[in-house]
Simulated assay, not measured.
Amino acid sequence: MIVLESLEAVRNLCERYVSAGLSVGFVPTMGALHAGHVSLFRQSRCECEKTVVSIFVNPTQFGPGEDFASYPRPREADTELCRGAGVDLLFFASAGEVYPEGFQTWVTVGEVSKPLCGKSRPVHFRGVATVVTQLLSIVTPHRAYFGEKDYQQCLVVQRLAQDLHLGCSIRICPTLREPDGLAMSSRNQYLDPRSRRSAPRIRQALLAARDLVLAGETQVERILDRLRSVLEPGEDLRIDYAEVRDASTLEDFGDGVIRRGGAGIVIAVAVIAGRARLIDNIVVQP
């Protein structure tokens, strides 16, 4: 495995991969890697001849009072995990190189970035879209891999890749979960014992809401009532948002009734569990 720290060196090596006729898969990450990331690496290795991974804790996607300073950065462990997973190129980007003095160009994706996390974290998706656009432009991969847990982020990245003609296929891969259903996340390590015991209720609540939809329920508020009844929000779990949206556009259902057909619906939640803000979702075809 090659490890680099210069974006120019990364660009040059990836250009050589492409010039040699090799297919390139790319997994952008913020590090603190876990089995969910490894599943993305493996998917890339199945579909591509070279797999490239980036690690960069992107400051511009964090808002005031969020966890940028405390976000875990286990560089040595992340490097060994990538090596063991068969990654070909791992690179560490620096804020000074990604956002040099005088930087003033931002990528803003429209409607799909506004609800859900976009409403709770108003600067988040501008930061995500800008850094992902930069990284895709540097690596020029044939395919890039993202986890479905970050559902809204996946739609944002798909939109920008299509709108900006980046020539990269965005692959959305299933969420990996702990045995009790909790979605794997780097932020799970923030959970104290009490919060960790409570956190699996997030998945249980999503499944209960899904089952109600599959049983024929179409009223958004009844679906969310079922979710809340299973989640049992209180001191241990606080709801940031719980919403039912169109799965392809993230538009809401203004009349309070879900529509059948198309891409289906996504039931999405963000929950505060102790120090951790956890997101999860489930896509349902009514």
Rank of each mutant, 00 (worst) to 15 (best):
V107G: 05
V57K: 07
P179I: 06
E66P: 00
V128D: 06
D78H: 01
V132D: 04
A77Q: 07
E101L: 09
V271Y: 09
P174C: 09
L40K: 12
A263V: 07
T79G: 01
S198D: 14
G21C: 03
A268Q: 11
Y145L: 08
P122R: 10
G118E: 11
P28L: 07
Q134A: 01
S186L: 01
G21P: 01
K149I: 08
R73D: 03
A270G: 15
S39D: 12
V123Y: 09
V123H: 13
T130C: 09
P141R: 01
V284I: 14
R159A: 15
P28S: 06
D163M: 12
R226I: 11
L214E: 15
I2K: 11
D225A: 14
P115N: 12
E101C: 00
V230D: 02
Q204Y: 01
I279L: 11
L166M: 15
S54R: 06
H34E: 02
L116W: 04
W106M: 03
A276H: 02
P286D: 06
P200M: 04
Y241P: 12
G86N: 04
I265Y: 03
Y190I: 04
Q43T: 10
E235A: 15
G21E: 01
N58T: 14
L214I: 14
R226C: 15
S19G: 11
A242H: 05
E76G: 08
V157T: 05
Q204K: 13
R187H: 08
R177F: 06
Y99T: 00
E251A: 15
A183S: 13
D255F: 00
F125S: 06
T130I: 07
D246P: 05
E232T: 12
E217P: 07
L33F: 05
R228S: 11
L278G: 02
D211E: 15
R275N: 10
G256Q: 05
C82L: 03
A93F: 02
P28R: 02
E80W: 06
E178N: 02
P72F: 06
N281L: 10
V257Q: 10
T249H: 05
A183L: 09
V24A: 04
S248F: 13
A93S: 08
K114A: 15
E66D: 05
V87I: 05
L176C: 12
I2G: 00
T130G: 07
E76S: 14
F26P: 05
P286H: 02
R197L: 15
E101W: 00
A20W: 04
R203M: 11
S113K: 13
S39R: 08
K149G: 06
S195K: 04
I223F: 02
S19F: 09
L278R: 02
